[in-house]
């Protein structure tokens, strides 16, 4: 097998991306451009690097010491630049793997995540690299590891056809129900996403072993309107199956500020404060109301609020 996959991070012992303890593989490259994105380094599929300023000792060896330089754009891909940095302040943002190498890396934590947990493939948008991800998930299946796919839904339909049968759990993002708003905030409408959601639910109906978790980011001014949450709730209600184990409302966090600085990117949420808990609780009630009060125990409010 010669397929190469590109990740921007592999995080071990995660607890937020599925049940139990998990290793999460974050694939690099995304189909959406959400204005609030917490992982700006995940957006482009290209090999990039950034300079971790606090580590830099200004030795000048890299010759990238021009403050105006956008390192990650201008790097020609020569790994020597990274290797020669004595302080390891230049950090590559993409790692390229063969499926075998990545599986071997995941194997190191297998003892920890096999009791209750497994592997989550997230992104970026993992389905953008679906041939690689499919091989990866097959490898996980062969090892009897629990598999989860964390998708924004903006992916070619054929990708889901291949990936869904390889998953025990799908974490599906539903962000904004109004398509033009969706376009405004994420760079594209939500038609493909909703089609893929229906496709996923249709598949799930025939495969009751597949579990679904829905995730909605609560972003101030973008997704946190009552009508939006209500609309997502109604939509979910219409497509409900009991396999939808939970719907997580994930409150905005502002921890990505530094990442945007390192990327030399503007972030329109740089100054946005955390959500007030009261507002979060109201949206939780809205969500429960729209979904159906009997499903109150499936909706969760998560994240730091004030």
């Amino acid at each position: 097998m010669s397929k190469q996959g590109h990740t921007f991070s592999v995080k071990r012992m995660q607890t937020h991306d599925g049940p139990g303890l998990r290793t999460t593989v974050f694939m690099k490259g995304c189909s959406l451009r959400c204005a609030w994105c917490h992982n700006p380094e995940s957006l482009s599929g290209k090999a990039e690097l950034w300079r971790n300023e606090p580590r830099c000792i200004g030795c000048g060896i890299c010759a990238l010491d021009d403050g105006s330089l956008t390192d990650h754009d201008n790097w020609n891909g020569d790994p020597a630049v990274i290797e020669n940095c004595p302080a390891k302040a230049l950090e590559p943002l993409r790692k390229d793997w063969s499926v075998e190498a990545l599986l071997a890396d995941l194997e190191r934590d297998a003892a920890f995540f096999t009791k209750n947990g497994g592997i989550t493939v997230s992104g970026g948008e993992p389905a953008m690299q679906w041939p690689f991800v499919a091989e990866l998930l097959k490898g996980c299946r062969e090892r009897e590891w629990h598999t989860a796919l964390d998708t924004c839904g903006a992916a070619p339909a054929e990708a889901l056809d291949v990936l869904l049968p390889l998953c025990d759990l799908v974490l599906f993002d539903l962000k904004i129900m109004n398509s033009s708003n969706h376009r405004k905030w994420t760079g594209q409408g939500n038609e493909q996403i909703l089609d893929n959601f229906c496709k996923t639910m249709a598949y799930a109906t025939e495969h009751p072993e597949l579990k679904i978790w829905i995730r909605t980011p609560l972003i101030p001014g973008a997704t946190d309107g009552t009508e939006n949450i209500e609309a997502i709730g109604h939509f979910l209600s219409n497509h409900w199956t009991d396999q939808i184990e939970r719907w997580d409302l994930c409150a905005f966090n502002n921890l990505a500020v530094e990442k945007y600085q390192k990327m030399n990117m503007e972030w329109e949420f740089a100054e946005t404060p955390l959500m007030e808990r009261k507002h979060g609780e109201e949206l939780l009630q809205t969500a429960i109301g729209a979904l159906g009060p009997e499903k109150y125990d499936r909706v969760y409010l998560k994240g730091r609020m004030i």
Binding site: M13, T15, H16, G20, L21, F112, K115, N116, G117, Y300, L301, K302
Partner: peptide, 15 residues
């Protein structure tokens, strides 16, 4: 490290 609704005992136990 623990999600709000996470079963901490379960995760610590597993680790």
């Amino acid at each position: 490290y623990f999600a709000e609704d996470a079963d901490r005992g379960e995760l610590v136990d597993q680790f």
